[in-house]
Design a protein around this nucleic acid. Structure first.
Lengths: 116, 116
DNA sequence: GATGTATTAAACCAGTCAGTTATTTAACCA
DNA sequence: TGGTTAAATAACTGACTGGTTTAATACATC
C-alpha cells in the first residue's frame, strides 16, 4: 500500500545517514561518490539512500555527463514542519512550566539564603 | 543498536495511526480503549503504537485505576522542528522562485492578451 | 572499440515493523 | 471469592529496511 506523503517524509528522515546527506546538500549539488565519502558503507548503499530521498521528494537528481548529482528539495520539509507547528503551543506551554519552575526554585533559594 | 533520538522521533512520526493518536491527545489524556475506537485494528496493535510513542518520549503514561491514559509530551517534537528549521531558508527560497515564476507567467499572459 | 570511472540494478540476508490471535496481569465490583 | 473490564505480553506472520556482493549500464577518453 502506498503510504501517505507525510509518512514517507518522516520515514526518509528517520535515518542519520539520510539526514547527513540532506545536510551536505544544503551547500549545493553533490555527486554520489562525493556524498558517499564520509560514510562507512558501500556506494550501492548510498545510492539506495538517495533513492529513498528521491522517492520522498526530498532531493532531485540530474545528469551531468557520467555524474548524477543530487540537489536538495525543501518543500516536503516545509510540509512536515507545518504538520508539527500545530504542537508548538504544547512545547511552549511546557517551556513556560519549566520557566515557572525555575523561578520558583530561585525564590526558594532566596528564602533559604542561597541567593547570590 | 540504539538509534539516535532524532531518528527515533521521526520513525515514530512515520505512521499515520501514530500521528492520529498524537492529534487526539492534543485535546487531553485518553485511555487506550478510547484511543483505539477510530481505528480498524485490534487493541494490542494500538497498545504497540503507544509503546513506540512512549519509547520516543512523544507521550507519557500514568495509571488511573484500571486505565492507563496517555498524555502528549511535546519537547521531542520541538527538537525535531528545530532540526528542520535550518532548511527553512531553502523552502522560502523556492517559494520566492515560485512567486517569481507566477509573476512571469502573468506577464506572459498579458503580453498574449490572455489577461483578465 | 577498449578501457576506466560513475552509478545503478539484482539477488541475497538479518533485523525490524505492523499487524494478528491467544494468554496473562491488574484493578474494579459484588 | 468470582466475574468483568482495561491493558499488556507472547508468539507468530508477512512485508519492509539497510546493508552486502556481484553484475550491468552509461558516459569519457584514448
Amino acid at each position: 500500500m502506498a503510504p501517505d506523503q507525510l509518512s514517507t517524509t518522516f520515514a526518509a528522515l528517520a535515518d542519520p545517514t539520510r539526514r547527513a546527506i540532506l545536510a551536505r546538500l544544503a551547500s549545493g549539488e553533490v555527486s554520489v561518490t562525493d556524498l558517499a565519502k564520509p560514510f562507512d558503507m558501500t556506494l550501492p548503499a548510498v545510492s539506495k539512500h538517495l533513492k529513498v530521498l528521491e522517492n520522498a521528494r526530498l532531493i532531485s537528481r540530474r545528469r551531468d555527463g557520467q555524474w548524477r548529482p543530487a540537489r536538495l528539495e525543501a518543500h516536503r520539509l516545509r510540509e512536515a514542519t507545518k504538520w508539527m507547528e500545530r504542537y508548538r503551543i504544547f512545547w511552549e506551554q511546557s517551556l513556560d512550566r519549566l520557566d515557572q519552575h525555575l523561578r520558583e526554585l530561585q525564590r526558594e533559594d532566596k528564602k533559604h539564603g542561597r541567593g547570590k
